[in-house]
Design a binder for these strands. Sequence first.
RNA 1: GGACGUUUAGCUCAGCUGGUUAGAGCGCUGUCCUCACACGACAGAGGUCGGUGGUUCGAUCCCACCAACGUCCACCA
Length: 911
Amino acid sequence: MPAKKPALKPKKTSAKPAAAQLDKAYEPKAVEDRIYAAWEASGYFNPDNLPGKRTEPFVIMMPPPNATGTLHIGHAMFMTLEDLMTRFHRMRGKAALWVPGTDHAAIATNAKVEKIIAKEGKTKYDLGRAGFIDRVKEYIAGSQGTIRKQIRKMGSSCDWSREAYTFDEPRSRAVREIFARMFADGLIYRGNRIVNWCPHCESTLADDEVEYKEEAAKLFYLKYGPFSVATTRPETKLGDTAVAVHPDDERYKKWHGKTFEVDFGNGPQEIRVIMDAGVDVQFGSGVVGVTPAHSAVDFAMAEKNLLPVKKVIGEDGKMTRLAGKYVGMTVVEAREKFVAELTSKGLLEKVEDMRHNLSVCYRCGTPVEPLTSRQWFVDVDRTIPKYKKSLKRMSLDAVRSKDITIVPDRFEKVYFHWMENLRDWCISRQIWFGHRVPVWYCAHCYVEEESIGRAGADEHETRKHTGITIGVDGAPQKCKDCGRSDLTEDPDTLDTWFSSGTWTFSTLGWPDKTKDLKRFHPTQVLETGYDILFFWIARMILMTTYATGEIPFETVYLHGLVRDDKGRKMSKSLENIIDPLDVAEKYGTDAVRLSLVIGNTPGNDLKMSEDKIAYFRNFTNKLWNISRFILMSGTVKKQKARPAAKTLADKWILGRLDETVKSVTKDIEGYNLSRPGETLRDFTWNELADWYLEIAKIEGGKEAMLSYLLENVLKLWHPFMPFVTEEIYKRTFASKEGDFLMIAPWPKAGRGADKTAEKDFGLIRDVVASIRTIRANYKVEPSKKIDVLLAAGKNAALLSKHAAVIRSLARVENLDIAVTRARPEKTAGAVVRGVSAFVPLGALVDLGAEKKRLGDELAMAEKYAVSLGGKLANKDFVARAPAAVVAAEREKLEATKDKIVKLKAQIEGLA
RNA sequence: GGACGUUUAGCUCAGCUGGUUAGAGCGCUGUCCUCACACGACAGAGGUCGGUGGUUCGAUCCCACCAACGUCCACCA
């Protein structure tokens, strides 16, 4: 192409009317911090300050991030989702409350600080318990501010005046209080039972804190008295007190209930033969060595059969005195020695290779050692006097009754399964940092029961626990049983989840009967990741139904994991981490938020990429420029009422707005948060910007319409991208200081779509598009104007009325509209919705290409007509399909037939 | 071993209770810095909706089976 453009182009001048101007591009960095500070200063994050009556609450408790942590993309996602819901309901006139907080995360924080002092060459024992706790507190104080700043950066409209910390005094008091109540109800007991022990953390772990790692293992077959027994852990056989066989296994029937002795070179062991239906007859020899002290399954058998429990591995990971000559050895050493001994004695029959799931600590990856230990437990099966139900029952009923719904609902099944199989919950931990078990033992009357198992589990009277005093408000002065004051505090701390379980109500002031608790509990939504369904959600339901008799929340919204664009987890080693703060800096927080909401559905993982964020950055800029255009084309002000539609385009866009309001509102209410984003984007970009604004340039006189549309669009977008919308609002509609979009009332859906306007406008749009297509096919420069001839049939009047719009949008010089006409020479043609269009292009017209293009279209139309015809010829279809469907198919067939006729005429006209 | 999820254009995904000539965004191709926006406009190419059966007048959508991928739970000693 020769460069023949005019050398002189008038320079664009920015000498626009005095109306407020927007910069050409949206600059998030210049806006976000200022806007957030203004919001915060307004006080509107606190529902007490919101205007109006607001009787209906909408409450979310923020899942507290670790106090020592930093914001990652997962946090950014949940903050966006929760903020979206909170802002939406605030605009809908509810008392919206979103309580922020941080978590002391006992194990994680404890481990972190241990690591830090290790660098100084010290261990926690060098500092001593008090010194170590001081270090932890100091560390948290130093880092807690980081996460708070980052929560603000995401635009979170949470009520900082109610901020809570899982380890602050109000929350600690709630923990001690609920412990005391559960103890009084006999739900908390101290027992010597099997637990998961992490030798590295030197602490117990809850069942769900144990993970499994598949690895190669050896299966040893031992000559075991009269039997053969297979095991991957030979050294634990020193703790065997029984063997189990299947009750129906004929091979071993004569042994049922008998006792025999084995000697593995470590002295004789007395072994009973018990029956258990869980034994797999096919596996190994069908005989299982029962090691009550080091296997949860075996422990259960021991309880049932009253077997002795012989603990051969200690909390230090070394063999105990009961392991005889192996005492003091590590487990691995003992295994080697023991296998060697068995071999020399001819007791080792064979060794097989196998794949085996090793249990490891979810924190440190160290293999977990199941062993019996004296710990505190929550009894989940015992009937609670006040409720006449067990904790398990209450937790199940809360969801079964639909008082709590889980989104998506498939997780309800997962919840039920887990809850039904829940065993007593070990809540004592041996780490130093955390809520202290609020228990004091009396030196005079406390006696450790030697019983194994659930102390008093079978009786329904209160468990005895003589000599145990609970300190709810600090250390008790006297033993509750003997009155003497020689008391020792329990050294252990509580499972983090025991305290997080109180989150929805401890944050509202429980156990005091506060106004907040009355007004805001139960909460409406708990939004969190499906990965902590058991850890946290289940514990909250359990603790809350017990403590308050209420459910903690009405709806559980579960989000997925954020993955990279290839679906992999983000990790340091893969170098695929997207840091929300980095990308917020680069693309703006609103863009990051949109990328975390749109395409994100409950319960499913979300793939993220920087490209996606960049796309939404472009969109925020688009919205900015839409506003900029509207601002430049006239005065923008709030409209008291909907402006009257003067033209077809007005009618159409108002109908589309109504539809959009309706569907967006419905979706957000139904916890469908992605679709409204897409609906809004389509409306804003494809309808408002691409069509209505272009027509506004032609028709003019749209100040009121444009103001009305912009105000509504800003409101609808606000929960999704609060910063840019608030900033535009401030520069356009805000009448005075303190007028915030954040508290503007949510738009009401009007009449809905205007069917006639939609159809008529659709025709104009399609005619314009078909002319544009011809232009593009013949590579007509956009700046060049062309002539167009239309044969419009019954639509001639409608098209004539909107000729100016068509001419401008399709860049037409002369538009000649007739009812019918023959094909003029040297034209390119098209048929759209019963309208024939002809564009005279002189020598440019390629007859062959025209013929082919129209021919292809004809072929498609004919094929379609055949399929429609076939359908309508089918008696069953006509008889059974709903009348409306049949009528619609008839109409389609008529339209297609009409199209075929017109296409044929055009093709003939070419000859 | 049990349960669940996913499978639609090269990529990421829509498609709500079965009736559309199957949609969007990115990417790709072409034209254009048209007076809001090149972080833009216009136009275009690209899919037998994982497979096989079934139900139905009609199936991307419902049912059964199969396959691949993924997740959770249990854990065999």
